Computed example of a mutant assay.
Amino acid sequence: MKSKKYRILKWTLGVLASIIVLLVCLGFWIKNLVPPKLMELESSKTENLTYVTKNVPEPRGKILAVVTSTSTMGMSGKSTGYELTELARAYYVFTANGFEVDIASPLGGKPPVVIDDEDMGEYDYAFLNDSEAQHKANNTIKIDNVITTDYEAVYFVGGKGAMFDFPNNAAIQAIIKEYYQERKVIGAVCHGPAALVNVTLDNGQHLVENKTVSSFTNKEELLLISDAETIFPFLLQDKLIEGGARFNEGSMYLEKMSHDDNLITGQNPWSVWVLAETMIKQLGYTPKTRPITGEENAVSVLLTYEREGIDKAKALMEHIMHGKEEPMSRLLVTKHSIIGVMQGDVKRFTNILRLASYAKKLDSRE
């Protein structure tokens, strides 16, 4: 009997040891798929971004960007703020297309900011190294003091803090109501659409009623914060639907943008580029040609995988990386495999790792 128990224990320990070894090996393999961080990105300067500095149109007016002043998620103690990438990328699209950008917040002054090093690109670091942009970001206009007639459009930046200080701010509601009714452009991304949920028009109708909108989704929120329903005053997708919106939901953590007349909304940070350029179009201008980023190419590959499968995604990857003329973010592709793990979707996890591995094979620049 003792011998049998010993054999079972020995077998169990052997299996556990094998699993641990496999996990360690898998971890090293995944780490090997992620390209090293390029230190030169951190020293990116606006003057080196030809998209921003060359062929800038004559001044076309001003756009107001609004960020949160909230630094903590309710009573949870978890820190928050506005998402730097969601401000920086839109800021440079607007300025590159001839618009001056002012930044406002509910409290004014220096708002809290969230910086995720893994998501940072050259435009984001350039924003941090841009003295004019930093002065505006660190000395925001109090939203109550905004002169609304100074601006052609308003853009609400995401960040989980927006869930707490955007929805019930009277000045924000007044700006949105005025701009919508005067057919000025309103943009909002990720948690930024929280600014829209309590806006009522002069006719008594909710702003979002019968409007096609996108925002951070319930699935995206709950996957990252399982107790989001107790931390936030509401789930943003639910609140927009409650107000009568036609919610336009895309794939998790991938680009999705909704354009309903002068109301333009995006699902998450990966929607910023297309949203900002759509705002330029709605303002009546053709956006300047912009170099596509490695992150955008990675999103295109991942969207192709979601819609058409791994073979089509590989074919697109080959097209993008042919001749090494265009970049593609292996880091973003690899990170998306983690979503499969969190969802318990082994097939998605392994397939996206296969895509990341294939990208590494195609990329001979290291």
Results as ranks from 00 to 15, higher is better:
338 I>L: 14
295 E>H: 08
264 I>A: 00
316 L>N: 11
311 D>W: 00
124 D>E: 14
32 N>T: 06
52 V>W: 10
110 K>C: 01
350 T>W: 15
320 I>W: 06
59 P>W: 01
231 I>S: 02
201 L>H: 15
234 F>P: 09
285 Y>Q: 07
129 N>V: 03
261 D>Y: 00
143 I>P: 01
306 E>Q: 15
54 K>T: 05
154 V>Y: 05
225 I>P: 05
303 L>G: 08
352 I>L: 12
181 Q>H: 13
116 D>S: 10
353 L>W: 11
76 S>R: 13
285 Y>P: 07
205 Q>G: 07
26 L>Q: 13
289 T>K: 13
206 H>A: 15
315 A>G: 10
6 Y>R: 15
186 I>G: 03
182 E>H: 14
40 E>N: 12
70 T>R: 06
262 N>T: 06
258 S>D: 02
160 K>V: 01
29 W>Q: 07
149 T>L: 07
128 L>H: 09
250 G>Y: 02
134 Q>C: 03
207 L>E: 13
67 V>M: 07
52 V>R: 06
151 Y>Q: 11
174 A>S: 15
318 E>V: 04
300 S>L: 04
7 R>Q: 15
270 W>N: 09
289 T>L: 07
45 K>N: 01
20 I>W: 14
141 I>G: 04
365 R>S: 15
138 N>W: 03
93 V>R: 09
194 A>V: 01
119 D>F: 09
157 V>G: 09
125 Y>K: 12
39 M>R: 14
190 C>K: 06
102 D>W: 06
88 A>G: 11
335 K>I: 06
39 M>A: 14
93 V>H: 08
217 T>C: 02
119 D>L: 12
126 A>D: 04
1 M>Y: 11
181 Q>D: 14
74 G>V: 06
364 S>H: 12
136 K>H: 03
44 S>D: 01
307 R>I: 05
271 S>V: 04
130 D>H: 10
84 L>P: 14
136 K>W: 07
157 V>L: 08
259 H>Q: 01
278 T>A: 11
7 R>I: 12
265 T>F: 01
348 R>D: 14
229 E>P: 03
255 E>T: 05
213 V>Y: 08
20 I>T: 15
172 I>C: 10
221 E>Y: 01
208 V>P: 08
109 G>M: 03
224 L>R: 08
261 D>E: 03
18 S>A: 15
252 M>E: 09
131 S>R: 08
66 V>T: 07
6 Y>H: 12
363 D>R: 12
219 K>W: 00
98 G>W: 00
102 D>A: 04
3 S>T: 14
124 D>G: 00
289 T>M: 02
100 E>Q: 13
161 G>R: 08
147 I>A: 06
299 V>R: 04
20 I>N: 11
64 L>M: 03
47 E>A: 07
